[in-house]
């Protein structure tokens, strides 16, 4: 079937089977491999995307259900020049990245939180990350990166655009 939606700020139209997940649509049909497959039961968050701005596990979303909606993947998160945005830079600075497999999902989860909460507490950050598993980091430096970004964005009158 033909599925029309907004993918990383551009309208797209794709002919895909109706019985696949959004995760499979992104990885197999758009070759956007930044969104990871790790459990396929909605437990790990490695496949996180922003669906109409909200955090979603793309492995639990039926591909046809994104018709007419807005999907942002990790490939759609960057600074205006295409480099890392402030959140991604803080992941690097704070040492939040190890094997990196969960990191696209973590960045997405961080953006989803910061879109609705400008200065979250560390506990609120932890709550927002509770659906995203990381086996490497113990989460400390990921929380640090999101906390630092929140402070940075709160201090700036015009927070850096996270997408273009």
């Amino acid at each position: 079937m033909l599925i029309n939606f907004i993918l990383n700020h551009n309208p797209v139209s794709v002919d895909a089977p109706a019985d696949i997940t959004l995760l499979a649509l992104l990885r197999d049909h758009f070759k956007l491999t930044g969104t990871k497959e790790a459990c396929e039961v909605g437990e790990c968050g490695a496949c996180s995307v922003l669906l109409d701005g909200e955090l979603a596990n793309s492995c639990l979303v039926a591909a046809p259900s994104v018709m007419g909606r807005d999907v942002v993947t990790i490939e759609g998160i960057h600074a205006e020049d295409g480099g890392p945005n402030d959140l991604q830079r803080n992941f690097i600075e704070k040492g939040a990245v190890q094997c990196g497999f969960c990191i696209p999902g973590m960045v997405i989860a961080g953006e989803a939180l910061l879109a609705i909460k400008s200065e979250p507490s560390r506990l609120e950050i932890r709550e927002a990350l509770a659906g995203n598993l990381c086996r490497c980091t113990g989460y400390m430096q990921i929380v640090d990166a999101i906390e630092t970004t929140a402070k940075g964005r709160a201090e700036k009158p015009h927070p850096e655009k996270r997408e273009n």
């Binding site: 956007l32 491999t33 930044g34 490939e75 998160i77 960057h78 991604q88 992941f91 990245v97 990196g100």
Partner: peptide, 18 residues
């Protein structure tokens, strides 16, 4: 800075399954 962190935060790192 971790030398392989940039590609990882941008979602560009290619693991075998990618």
């Amino acid at each position: 800075q971790r030398v392989d962190a940039l590609d990882k935060v941008m979602g560009k790192t290619k693991y075998v399954g990618d």
